[in-house]
Amino acid sequence: MSPDLLSNLALFVLALLVGFEVISKIPATLHTPMMSGANSIHGVVLVGAVLIAGIADSLLGYVLVFVAAAFAAMNVVGGYVVTDRMLGMFRAKPKPAAAAAPEGTDR
């Protein structure tokens, strides 16, 4: 392995560990707003993966680009789904229809 690849891999692993620690410390009540705010960050990651795909020249590079693009796309879609669900909590609930008189009771 080249020294550049090894240092990049070490940086990636450190970023995973730091990200996991930061996310695990966030209270459950803040996860939904955090997800909706992170959509733009994951969009940038997706664009970066597409740009890197243009210069990838090995099988390992292609696999890493695919994994990065797949995870970023899942995060973007998941973030929008969670945001839609969160905004749905603030929509007015439909009023129930008036109960119709039971049949056979009219005299």
Rank of each mutant, 00 (worst) to 15 (best):
I52Q: 11
M74G: 04
H31T: 15
A98L: 10
N75M: 10
N39H: 03
A56P: 00
A15D: 09
T83V: 00
F20E: 12
L51Y: 05
G54T: 11
G54L: 07
R91K: 11
R107Q: 05
L60S: 13
Y80R: 06
I23S: 11
A49H: 09
A15P: 14
V50Q: 02
E103V: 11
E103G: 09
Y80S: 08
D57L: 06
A101R: 13
F66R: 07
T83H: 10
T83D: 01
A49N: 07
V44E: 14
R107M: 06
D84N: 07
G78I: 07
R107N: 08
G79Y: 02
G88W: 13
R85V: 00
G19Q: 03
A73T: 15
A100T: 08
G43C: 06
G104A: 04
P33N: 08
A68I: 03
Y80E: 01
V13I: 12
V82N: 05
M35C: 11
G37W: 12
G37Q: 07
S7I: 03
L30V: 00
K25Q: 13
L11A: 14
Y62M: 06
V81S: 13
R91D: 10
G79P: 04
D106T: 15
Y62E: 05
M35A: 15
S58W: 02
G43Q: 08
V13Q: 15
L51C: 03
D84W: 13
I23F: 14
M35W: 10
S58N: 15
A98C: 04
V18G: 01
P3D: 15
R91E: 07
V22I: 08
A38E: 00
A97L: 15
G48Y: 12
A99Q: 13
D4C: 03
F71M: 06
A68Y: 05
V67I: 15
L5G: 14
A70V: 12
R85T: 00
S36L: 01
D106A: 13
S40H: 01
G54K: 04
L17W: 13
M86L: 05
A69W: 05
T32M: 08
R91M: 02
H31V: 15
S40F: 09
R85F: 02
K25V: 00
L87Q: 05
K25G: 12
